[in-house]
Design a protein around this nucleic acid. Structure first.
Lengths: 332, 332
DNA sequence: CACAGTGTGGAAAGCGCTTTCCTAACAGTG
DNA sequence: CACTGTTAGGAAAGCGCTTTCCACACTGTG
């Protein structure tokens, strides 16, 4: 469709090599020749072909970012962070949603390998160890973000929920609550389990033996149905810890429907601090996860790992912290 | 890094051509030969190189999707729709955020051309006609989604806000409201202007002369400050039309802070029906934009246009409809 | 038996770039 | 003046695939 370098070279009266060198500034070319070449490039509206370039250089400037579902409000900031970090260093990113679908995930992985990406950041638990090793075998750097197995050759980003959860429980205990419930995320999700365990352990440590944990999924209506189930029992909690902000928002809407006041009757705490958390009514008290930094850190982890001659994974930890808003108050 | 087709061919005792044909099912190859080739492919964990392929075939299987900001909740479903449609037909998509930055937009455009994408869907108003024509000159299909100029060689997707807005105004009038305000989106945004004009015209037609329109931006706190300004005047509206759900959510939170009941004192209506609209409290009455269909339609528009030998843009219209929830009620 | 048709596979010419050598011209040095 | 260096640029060999053209071996037909 477009023009080729050879055409540009001919019109400028130079060799393709020279054109390449001018365009990539890869060697000094006399000012006059440069001018001629650039002039022709402008006239012809020439753009170099990235596929040919990648083939010739033998290395790609691509990174993959694998998430589960783009509509999940957890991801946008992560994506932004990752992309920004990659762009800053002249790399491009291929964004892939698994949509929680195994077959699709397989085919995504294949595409990433075929695209010869340098590294991929995996943000979804739907990739298992075997699948990941395909990447590693292909010489591709891998970083798992709060999912999946650590390993000699993969880096990991771990979100330390511990601290935020500690703060949250202290906050709630300090407000005089004695009966707390936990609505956890899906039972097959590593992050959800970690959070649930931390919550339960923390509550037990302070002798607030938690209500039976309710597992839900991350869909927006999951929190709602969990709450409806909870309210149908006689013994009601005065505080609810939710495995994500989405669950918390669902819970809040069900609580309101049931006529329970937040925070007068029941306090609600979420996790993530998605952008809507502070727009909720009342604004949601939540444990903030530094999502944009998850993205940038993931990229940097890859970048660093790939620079090592003897490749070796590293582990990164990111802190969480409690953000107190108005969905929590003294127990009545 | 990986193996090449030649290596596979040698180990399987065939020619590279045969390997290519087996892998792409591009010609019948005897079952026995196929088996041998595939066996070697498995042994070697061979993956074909997509850059070489694209270079050899001379056409790419890539489409570009240009949005402004991935954290804007309007986009995720659009992206999902576009990606899904592309994947279904074996194409890949390059997702680009302009972040409202001109320089960045320039460089994105260049990258898309260099990547030899077949078409690009533009969902942000930060690309002007001149820039778009660079794409067209490069033989790339272009579709504008509710932004930018129509033209001989570009297709457009237009969201028909008219109908939804009609319904919304009727709804509000039917509830007995006589004093309505409009908080519009940014004044330099084509969509925002369209919506504002339609709202104002509709209100005037029914003799509800609207309050002075307040322009805001799409940031989440814009609605809030608009409301604060509005409430400081003596004459208060009983209904507020917001240029987007985000603005509406901001408005609601400011109204609550100011002690105004929704919907008892003031009804609020948004536009978009983002996924959080129904989680708001009260759940937001809003004009739904079929976002996923915007994405799929955009892709189909490109696909169709590119199939024409004599390329020619077409225009597509997508309907909106009112979704009544609980943020609107009879005027008091 | 000659011939066309068909089914299976190989040879080789690119695709549009990058990059390694080379070369020619010129300047600087002892 | 012979030499070494340096500087600006060209020739050409790929990068790893696809695809056209060709060839060979069969089969079936008149």
């Amino acid at each position: 469709m477009g023009h080729t370098m050879r055409e540009v070279a001919k019109r400028a009266g130079v060799s393709p090599a020279t054109v390449s060198r001018v365009l990539n500034k890869t060697r000094y070319i006399s000012v006059e020749t440069q001018r001629r070449v650039l002039e022709v490039v402008r006239q012809l509206k020439y753009f170099k072909n990235v596929h040919a370039r990648r083939l010739a250089t033998g290395r790609s400037d691509l990174f993959g970012l694998v998430i589960s579902e783009i509509a999940n409000p957890y991801f946008p900031e992560v994506i932004r962070g990752f992309q920004a970090a990659a762009w800053d260093r002249g790399f491009d990113v291929i964004l892939c949603n698994t949509q929680y679908d195994q077959a699709r995930t397989k085919s995504i992985l294949r595409k990433l390998i075929e695209s010869d990406v340098r590294g991929v950041a995996v943000m979804t638990s739907s990739i298992d160890k075997a699948t990941a090793s395909e990447l590693i075998d292909a010489g591709i750097g891998v970083v798992f973000c709060n999912v999946g197995p650590a390993g000699k050759l993969v880096s990991t980003i771990s979100i330390d929920y511990q601290r935020g959860i500690e703060q949250a429980i202290e906050h709630i205990v300090g407000l005089g609550h004695r009966r707390a419930a936990v609505i956890a995320g899906p039972g097959d999700n590593r992050t959800a389990i970690t959070i649930k365990d931390a919550l339960v352990a923390g509550l037990k440590k302070r002798n607030l033996n938690p209500f039976p944990v309710i597992n839900s999924n991350y869909r927006v209506d999951a929190g709602a149905s969990a709450v409806r189930a909870m309210l149908s029992t006689t013994d009601k909690p005065t505080a609810i810890f939710c495995g994500s902000d989405l669950i918390a928002l669902g819970a809040m809407s069900a609580l309101e429907e049931a006529g329970a006041g937040i925070p007068e009757d029941i306090s609600v705490i979420g996790i993530d601090d998605i952008s809507f958390a502070f727009l909720a009514r009342p604004p949601l008290t939540t444990i903030r996860v530094p999502r944009e930094r998850v993205g940038t850190t993931a990229f940097e982890a890859l970048d660093r790992m790939l620079k090592l001659k003897r490749r070796k994974g590293a582990d990164y930890y990111l802190e969480t912290e409690l953000v107190v808003r108005r969905s929590t108050a003294t127990a009545r």
